[in-house]
Simulated scan of single mutants.
Amino acid sequence: MTIQPGAGDSLLDPSLSAIMGERRQLINLAYRLLGSLSEAEDVVQETYARWYAMSRQQQEAIESVGGWLTTVASRICLNLLGSARVRREHYVGEWIPEPLPEPTEWITGRPGATTVDPADHVTLDESINMAFLVVLESMTPAERVAFILHDVFRYSFAEVAEIVGRTQAACRQLASSARRRIRDSQPPANPTAHQAGIVRNFKQAWEAKDIGALIGLLDPDATAIGDGGGLVSAVLRPIEGGEQVARFLVGLADRAPDLAIVERTVNGQPGLVAQHDGVTVAVYAFDVAGDRIKHLWAVGNPEKLRPWTTG
């Protein structure tokens, strides 16, 4: 689960190359810490702003540019995580982490154009799937930072302690607590092909408005959560129970007959995208346990769909 930093452009000035070569690493780190690509981009911008605000002498005195940038970005994220809890108390409805497509499917503001800068892409692995990110949301800010830095990015506890401002022993405890949360909430991993088959069957049953088939694909205790952010219509509370979820989805299909449901990779896992006239209006992520769907997350907040749709 280790994330490696991106390579710098050898054609650049060596010092600038070393600095900009860390951009992808910082984007990956900040997204995992915040669950928001837009906030992650803001953190990286602020981190570089602080670097360039220093004098040349101050910059040259820093032994490890990458270490300094990571420390600053992590501390900014730690502060943001504390304030995010307060902000999300006033969020309209449920808050779901921002979904990400495959890097080759990222869209800029121009119709038909895709992002070409690999430094703007988040590496998709098991530490980025929606179920994992949702568990991270249940952690304290310090737990989340200690766990991501140590278990995902392989920083030593001595380095984590310096970043978080706690003792090494405290950071070990934070990471251990976070690990237990992950272990207790994550079902045994399914092969991607198996998950894709379940999601494909779900799509076909949904399009056919086959309540029986949907109920058969959903765990009896399945939960569906929507995120419209107050900008588009979405259920404000989780829908609980496989049958209730199935009936809601069929009702949604009745109310929006023109929606096209397309199979896509969502945060590295098989998912679905709802499109209207070719424009993505919702992204669906799934948590598959065995042969049943245990959780379904639907993100319709347009502010979280920038990589999926044209501006």
Rank of each mutant, 00 (worst) to 15 (best):
G8M: 06
S10G: 03
L12Y: 14
L12G: 10
L12H: 13
D13Q: 05
P14C: 14
P14W: 12
L16T: 11
S17T: 07
S17G: 01
S17H: 06
A18K: 11
A18V: 09
A18R: 14
I19C: 09
N28E: 11
R32S: 03
L34K: 03
G35S: 10
L37M: 10
S38A: 08
S38Q: 09
E39A: 05
A40S: 02
E41R: 05
D42I: 04
D42G: 05
V43H: 06
V43M: 06
V44R: 05
Q45D: 09
Q45I: 08
E46W: 08
E46L: 09
T47S: 04
R50L: 15
R50T: 12
A53N: 08
R56C: 00
Q57R: 13
Q59E: 03
A61G: 04
I62Y: 01
I62R: 04
E63M: 09
V65C: 00
G67V: 04
W68A: 01
L69G: 03
T70G: 00
V72N: 06
A73M: 03
R75D: 04
R75P: 03
I76K: 05
N79V: 06
N79A: 08
L80W: 10
L80P: 02
S83F: 13
A84N: 11
R85I: 08
R87Q: 11
R88N: 02
V92W: 13
G93H: 06
G93E: 05
E94R: 12
E94M: 15
I96Y: 10
I96H: 08
I96Q: 05
P97E: 07
E98F: 07
E98D: 11
E98M: 13
E98I: 10
E98H: 03
P101V: 11
P101G: 00
E102K: 10
E102T: 04
T104M: 14
T104V: 14
E105D: 13
I107T: 15
T108I: 15
T108A: 09
G109L: 07
R110P: 03
R110G: 02
P111A: 15
T114Y: 15
T114M: 13
V116S: 11
P118K: 15
P118L: 14
A119N: 04
A119R: 06
T123S: 14
L124Q: 14
D125E: 03
E126M: 07
S127R: 00
S127V: 07
M130Q: 09
M130A: 08
F132M: 10
F132L: 07
